[in-house]
Amino acid sequence: MRIEVPVHNRHGDRVDPVPFLVTVGIAFTFALSFGPIYGLSYGLALSTSLAVSTLAFAVAAAIAYQQLVRCAPPLDAGPLPPGPRVERLLYAGMALGVLIVALTVPLL
């Protein structure tokens, strides 16, 4: 049984929700896995660390929604040019790599 939830952009056209869901899942993993640990190491209380991490996740989810759902082209827009797509994918991969390296640096 397949349940389909239609997701629409700002023009009312259907868009693919999978990139948004993957991005939000990664943001949730990073924000609530590393955020409280770093908050505690900087002297914040656990509740404050969780609140700041949840806020960071909410901001990341809002940005992902804006970029990947609200401003997305419709499914029937046809193929997008590969140049800009590859460039965006490269930049996203580099940003994720920088984030992973930054999170593995020991805290001072």
Score class of each variant (00 low, 15 high):
residue 87 E to F: 13
residue 77 A to P: 06
residue 42 Y to L: 11
residue 71 C to N: 15
residue 83 G to V: 10
residue 74 P to H: 00
residue 42 Y to R: 05
residue 51 A to H: 01
residue 48 T to L: 15
residue 62 A to S: 13
residue 75 L to F: 05
residue 53 S to A: 15
residue 76 D to G: 03
residue 94 M to E: 06
residue 61 A to F: 11
residue 85 R to Q: 13
residue 57 F to G: 03
residue 53 S to F: 04
residue 47 S to P: 03
residue 43 G to Q: 05
residue 59 V to F: 05
residue 72 A to G: 06
residue 76 D to E: 14
residue 75 L to H: 01
residue 51 A to D: 04
residue 77 A to H: 10
residue 48 T to K: 11
residue 84 P to R: 09
residue 90 L to D: 07
residue 63 I to N: 06
residue 55 L to F: 14
residue 57 F to S: 06
residue 83 G to R: 12
residue 42 Y to K: 05
residue 70 R to P: 00
residue 75 L to W: 00
residue 88 R to L: 12
residue 67 Q to C: 00
residue 49 S to M: 06
residue 44 L to A: 13
residue 44 L to K: 08
residue 88 R to G: 12
residue 74 P to K: 02
residue 47 S to C: 02
residue 51 A to I: 01
residue 82 P to V: 12
residue 48 T to N: 14
residue 83 G to F: 03
residue 48 T to M: 15
residue 74 P to D: 01
residue 77 A to N: 11
residue 57 F to M: 05
residue 68 L to N: 11
residue 79 P to S: 13
residue 71 C to L: 13
residue 56 A to F: 11
residue 88 R to N: 09
residue 70 R to S: 13
residue 50 L to D: 08
residue 78 G to L: 09
residue 85 R to W: 01
residue 85 R to N: 08
residue 45 A to R: 14
residue 88 R to S: 13
residue 92 A to H: 07
residue 73 P to M: 02
residue 50 L to P: 00
residue 53 S to Q: 01
residue 76 D to P: 02
residue 93 G to K: 02
residue 71 C to G: 00
residue 78 G to E: 08
residue 81 P to S: 10
residue 57 F to T: 02
residue 43 G to V: 06
residue 83 G to W: 09
residue 69 V to Q: 10
residue 92 A to P: 06
residue 48 T to V: 14
residue 82 P to R: 15
residue 63 I to Y: 07
residue 87 E to V: 08
residue 75 L to T: 10
residue 91 Y to I: 01
residue 70 R to E: 14
residue 68 L to T: 01
residue 86 V to Q: 13
residue 90 L to K: 10
residue 91 Y to H: 08
residue 92 A to I: 09
residue 50 L to Q: 14
residue 52 V to T: 01
residue 54 T to G: 15
residue 74 P to V: 00
residue 53 S to P: 05
residue 49 S to K: 05
residue 42 Y to V: 05
residue 78 G to P: 08
residue 91 Y to M: 07
residue 62 A to E: 09
